[in-house]
Amino acid sequence: MLEGKFDEASLLKKVIDAMKDSVKLCNFNCTENGISVQAIDDSRVLLISLLIEAGSFEDYRCDRNIVLGLEMESLNKIIKNGNASDMLTLVAEDSPDALNLIFEDKRRDRIAEYSLKLMDIDQDFLKIEDMKFDAVVNMPSAEFAKICRDMKTLSESLQIIITKDSVKFNSEGDFGSGSVVIKSFTDLEKTEESVRITLEKPINLTFGAKYLNDIIKSTPLASQVTIKLCDKQPALFEYQLPSGYLRFYLAPKFED
């Protein structure tokens, strides 16, 4: 049996909100260590890897491994019915045909209970070995989100160029072009505002702006985003959870 209680529904609300526009069907794998998901978008360009460790829950138990096949839009409809500050408990039997979601208001005696039918989802699984990266950028997630939104107004592609101490986001469109340069910066008082660049080799990669604009839906989850890049390889965008992560692997674009 699975029983996982979040102190606040807000965490799962943000996670589902970040995923639902990229993937429609997901298997949520529940083990004694927590809940994990690997899901790929229909175009097979963007992969989501989610890990909500047991430590993200106030109470967590999962006696046997359980797979919950969930339709994200349906899950989102139910999740939206709960308040962000509600306690949220996920309950499923050992061989479940439904996931129960219980929202409890902390101030009042109000309990809302929902049942979501499970689906049998046949998904293939991509084997991602430990990747080596040439460059790692830690920067404020809100700043990264603004850059992705701004650059998408110009072009469907966004070029990321990293040299010693700066990251250049470059966009070349039909009616014009634009770029934003971010430099390493340490804010001792507000560490979440800092930009850290770790570079082994210079990077020049191009990504689809559409996918980046799906990734930035994770911005409410974490004040910083970590971007890991390697020449001619998929990039990794990571948002840390209190205990766990939401990662996106994005395949690059290449010259014709």
Binding site: L47, D124, L126, A251
Partner: peptide, 14 residues
């Protein structure tokens, strides 16, 4: 503006 690659080109399917 460039050819979009897919993740299957980089990661094997299990």
């Amino acid at each position: 503006d460039g050819l979009q690659s897919t993740l299957g080109e980089f990661f094997p399917t299990e």
